[in-house]
Amino acid sequence: MDNIEKFNTIATLAVANYDIQFQEIKFLAEETNILYKLTDDKSNPFILKIYQEDSITKEDILMEVYMMELVSQKGEVSVPCILTAKDGSKIQEIKIDEDNHPKRVVIYSWLEGEDLDGNENEERFVQLGELTAKLHNATYGATVPKIFSPKRWDAVFYYHQENVVYKDSKYQHFLTKDYHEIMDKMIPYLNHQLSSYYQKNEENLQFIHSDLNPWNILVHEKAMHVIDFGDILFGLPQHDIAILLYYYRYEKEFNYKEVQQLLFKGYERVRPLPMFEEFDLELLMTARRVNFLNYILTVSEDPSSFIEKSLPRVKEFIDTYNVKI
């Protein structure tokens, strides 16, 4: 059984566990996870996700469900709703052979829209600031259930089972002495700084999205939706803000400072902007960049272009803030 056939079988078995009469199951995309578009007998669309990575645990998915329901209950941010199966469960575990672990499957309501990427303008950036603030309002003060151990961005490599691979021999033809010197020195420095944010701000920690990027924001007419809560962590609102700004920091078609001010303007319409300095945002963006400088080696056949662009940006942070490493 090839992969597509296997995933088709998993999707078919999963939808049988719901009361909804699905008429069509259509393969949509293979990204980090496998996505299908479903259509019921009333022509309503849904999306089915098959979690592909073994590093994603059932607890991770339950936390995703928990946060989405928190946000949905507030009613101010448009997010997908997770469907409940006949047995009351949100997550299906489908096993089709004895040689593989069960695949976890979730079905969401469909949200109409296009990626924010390519649809940005001043009005959208202000709206995005408002949306981010409403998202933070929705989870502010929520307690962490005892069954959860959410990720914290207190180190450069903070994902579960994340492999630090840049020392592996098979990647060395892509890497220079300069790359190694910067990574070797910056990682301990950034780890110390990232950890200090938690030590100094324990009372301000809350669930955050942690992957607000232009592909996880959908726009449709005047509406804006947030999707993909798979990377949530227990952190600070400024973590989300820095991650969002990361994607515009060096984009030539945008004036970064204008984007920043528009986002802040929208955010402050809803709630006060968190206390941080420009240094804090730049440090968080640099930490993400250093993480990606390792991660890119595992997902790209030729990471040279990303490395050539990103390494000077890490150096720029070091020089601008006279970082001693």
Rank of each mutant, 00 (worst) to 15 (best):
N8S: 01
A11D: 07
T12Q: 14
T12W: 06
A14P: 09
A14M: 04
Q21D: 15
Q23Y: 13
I25D: 10
F27P: 02
E30I: 13
K37M: 14
K42Y: 08
I50R: 01
T57C: 03
D60V: 01
I61N: 01
E64F: 08
M67G: 05
V71I: 12
I82W: 12
A85D: 13
D87V: 13
S89A: 11
K90M: 06
I91A: 06
E93T: 10
I96M: 12
I96W: 07
D99W: 11
K103A: 07
W110S: 09
D117S: 11
G118M: 07
E120Q: 07
E120G: 00
V126C: 02
Q127N: 10
L128K: 00
L131W: 05
L135F: 13
N137V: 08
Y140L: 09
A142G: 05
A142Y: 06
V144K: 05
S149L: 12
R152Q: 14
A155L: 11
H160E: 12
E162G: 03
E162Y: 02
Y166Q: 05
D168K: 09
Y171D: 06
H173K: 09
D178K: 14
H180C: 09
I182E: 01
L190T: 04
H192G: 10
Q193V: 13
S195R: 02
Y198G: 04
K200M: 14
N204E: 12
H209I: 08
N213G: 03
N213Q: 06
W215S: 12
G230F: 03
F234V: 07
A242C: 12
E253R: 11
K265G: 01
G266M: 00
M275C: 14
E277V: 05
F279W: 04
E282N: 14
N291P: 07
L297Y: 08
T298P: 08
S310W: 07
E316G: 08
I318W: 04
I318H: 08
I318K: 05
N322W: 08
